[in-house]
Every structure is written in C-alpha cells, then in structure tokens.
C-alpha cells in the first residue's frame, strides 16, 4: 500500500535580530505545531535561529517562469529609479 502523504512545509528563519526571515528548507509535518517543532529540531541545531516561520507549501503562490519577460523585464528600463542616474557635482560631496 502506498504511504499517505504528510503535508510539506516551508521553513523561514531569522538568524539575528534585525534581519529578515530567510527561507532555509522544507520538512513534513501533520500540522502547524508539529511543523514548528520539527523546524526547530532540524534547522536550528547549530544556533542558526532566533525566530521561525513555517508555512504550508501549498499556501505559496509562485510566479510562472514562462512569464518572466512580462513580469520582470519592464523594470529593467527604469534606470531613473536608481541614484546613479542623477548627476550631482563632485564638490557637493556625498549625497
């Protein structure tokens, strides 16, 4: 008999105060509490974390790589959004 699937969770860890939570990996757990415990036991054994988020993998909506052009290329031409676009005389100093 095929083994029934246990839900998959994505794990995010804040490694230091002031930093954002960062995706570190996945695990299987039957519910959110077990997922949080498992995340602690798997992903913070070497003192990697101060805070953990677990999210059901099924709750993530991802962009389609095939739509990469439409999604991301239009931003590339907006060079005026970047500070280096503007010229400020050297004698003004850092701005």
């Amino acid at each position: 008999m095929a083994t029934p699937n246990t839900p998959l969770w994505e794990v995010f860890i804040r490694s230091r105060n002031g930093l954002a939570h960062k995706h570190v990996g996945s695990l299987h757990a039957s519910d959110a509490i077990m997922a949080l415990q498992a995340a602690r036991d798997i992903y913070t054994r070497r003192g990697e974390g101060l805070s953990i988020w677990v999210v059901p993998s099924s709750a993530i909506t991802a962009s389609d790589p095939a739509e990469k052009g439409m999604m991301f290329e239009p931003a590339e031409s907006k060079i005026y959004r970047h500070p280096t676009f503007y010229e400020v005389p050297d004698e003004v100093g850092h701005m």
Binding site: L27, H28, A29, A38, D41, I42
Partner: peptide, 11 residues
Amino acid sequence: PMLEEDMALSN
C-alpha cells in the same frame, strides 16, 4: 516513525 522525529529524539 519519521525522519523529523529521528531528529527530535536525537536532540
């Protein structure tokens, strides 16, 4: 019973 629990019990 599951890898996650191997990790937990070892900890």
